[in-house]
Simulated assay, not measured.
Amino acid sequence: MHKDQPETSLRQNRKHSVRRLLAAAAIATLSLSAHAAGTFDDARNAAVLGDAKGLARLIDGGIDPNSVDASGNTLLILAAREGQAATVEALLQRGVPIDQQNPSGDSALMLAVLGGYDDVVRALLKAGAKVNHDGWAPLHYAAFEGRESMLDALFAAGADVNARAPNRATPLMLAARNGHIGVVRRLLAVPETDLNALNDAGLSADAWALQNRNTDIAKLIEAERKRRGLPAPSMRITIE
């Protein structure tokens, strides 16, 4: 009995050693897997910096591509906002929701239009991004910022030329207010453009243009109204 005790203890020690090695290996594997998977912050950085390969690796390693940051922006919104076409494409290939909006009501397409990123806008439209919805829409942003190069693509996708923003402004009003004469000309060339619509202050596009000293634009709108044989708009005055 006493003679066998050292051998028994040796076997027990070996078992404990094997268990410890296996446990250490498991922990190391988990640690490596977590490192490979990365974090949402890693994915966000890859998205905004245009690192498509890195972003794809993180998503394929387990990062949820539909996660949002503290401001409610998805990876697609972040990539589009920064004009990163490569990471936008990588996300679209993985089937992320294309029309999701952040708490401010901005979609990936809206922010790409706002930033003037034509290649991102084309990619999102090709993937079927929505151009018409309540509130601010992509065409409003294009008109407000003077993104003339984007108008035809938005119209081809079915953008409503008379869409109303929350302040009741149409795209023509926004372009006229901000002095974007090229956008105004393009909008006036669309027969459906409403020349007599009024915003929430009771101003038409040409009246708003005049208010902001864009007299050349006001004259263009007046000339188009005359060409169409339309009466001058009835200005609405609110008395409180």
Rank of each mutant, 00 (worst) to 15 (best):
E7V: 04
T8L: 15
S9E: 12
R11Q: 15
N13I: 01
N13F: 15
H16L: 14
R20H: 01
R20G: 06
A25E: 01
A26V: 15
H35I: 11
A36G: 00
G38T: 03
T39K: 00
F40W: 13
D41S: 14
A43M: 13
V48F: 06
L49F: 08
R57A: 08
G62N: 05
P65C: 04
N66A: 11
V68Y: 03
T74E: 06
R81N: 08
Q84E: 12
A86K: 09
T87F: 10
T87W: 07
V88S: 06
E89F: 06
E89G: 00
D99Y: 14
D99L: 06
Q100C: 00
Q100Y: 14
Q100K: 12
S104K: 09
S104R: 12
L114F: 10
D119N: 14
D119P: 00
G128Y: 11
K130C: 03
V131T: 00
W136H: 00
P138F: 07
F144H: 13
M150I: 03
M150T: 05
D152E: 13
L154Y: 12
L154C: 08
L154T: 04
L154Q: 10
A156D: 14
G158V: 12
G158Y: 05
A159K: 09
A159V: 03
P166F: 13
N167I: 01
L172A: 07
A175E: 13
H180C: 11
I181C: 01
V190A: 04
T193H: 10
D194F: 15
L195F: 10
N196W: 07
A197Q: 05
A201H: 07
A201Q: 08
L203T: 01
S204C: 04
D206P: 00
L210P: 00
L210K: 07
A218C: 10
K219R: 12
K219F: 13
A223P: 15
R227N: 02
P231K: 01
P233G: 06
